[in-house]
């Protein structure tokens, strides 16, 4: 593990002196199937508990439906199903992260269902490693990069790539595993 890779900061000591000049971005991370994923915190609008949704007829299975977010109709996407992970029952701890996604047609507000919210990290851009080439069977377009936080890999997602497209590519759990294996 290089020194550079260890320069990580969690939210408890965000204002690390002497680091202000370096370009750092803050990421909100969440847990899904015991993996930690991160999204740019600037795109996060709010975090909500799971509430029942109104299903959309003939929608793909990972689109759970729509909710009323203070008068706006917001679609909810199950990221587990989106990534081809096993479905879990939604409970009181299930979390919906409401994100603002930039698409070709302008900004859209969408919610993603995840297992739990984890932390907020300030990460230096330099520390980010781009995802390795994983061959044909993995689409790494939506992965902004990989980063090590306390010896744990965090997968940083490019939500604009992930949710912006109309057709949502299938991402299998094997792809995630392979990324992990190749990291270690």
């Amino acid at each position: 593990m290089s020194a550079a890779e260890e320069r990580i900061y969690d939210n408890s000591d965000m204002d690390v002196s002497g680091r202000e000049n370096d370009q750092t971005d803050q990421y909100l991370t969440f847990i899904m199937a015991s993996e930690e994923y991160g999204v740019d915190i600037l795109s996060v609008q709010e975090i909500r508990g799971w509430e029942s949704v109104t299903p959309i007829p003939n929608a793909p299975s990972h689109v759970k439906g729509v909710i009323n977010l203070r008068g706006t109709i917001v679609p909810i996407i199950d990221l587990r199903q989106r990534f081809g992970l096993d479905k879990v029952e939604y409970g009181p701890l299930t979390v919906v992260i409401v994100l603002k996604v930039a698409t070709k047609k302008g900004a859209r507000v969408m919610g993603i269902v995840v297992d739990a919210v984890s932390d907020v990290y300030s990460l230096a851009v330099d520390d980010m490693k781009s995802a390795p080439d994983l061959g044909d069977h993995v689409n790494t377009q939506y992965i902004k990069g990989l980063v090590n936080v306390n010896n744990k890999m965090v997968i940083l997602l490019d939500i604009n790539e992930l949710l912006g497209a109309d057709t949502i590519p299938d991402v299998s759990i094997n792809a995630i595993k392979e990324i992990k294996d190749s990291q270690q």
Binding site: I56, N58, A59, V63, V66, I73, V74, P75, R108
Partner: peptide, 25 residues
């Protein structure tokens, strides 16, 4: 309310609305 603002056109659906109990229909 428009469905297209944050999602896309759904076949057979012209829009959505919010009922008295806050749910979407």
């Amino acid at each position: 309310k428009s469905m297209e603002t944050n999602y896309k056109k759904v076949d057979g659906i012209s829009g959505a609305t919010i009922l008295g109990d806050g749910t979407v229909s």
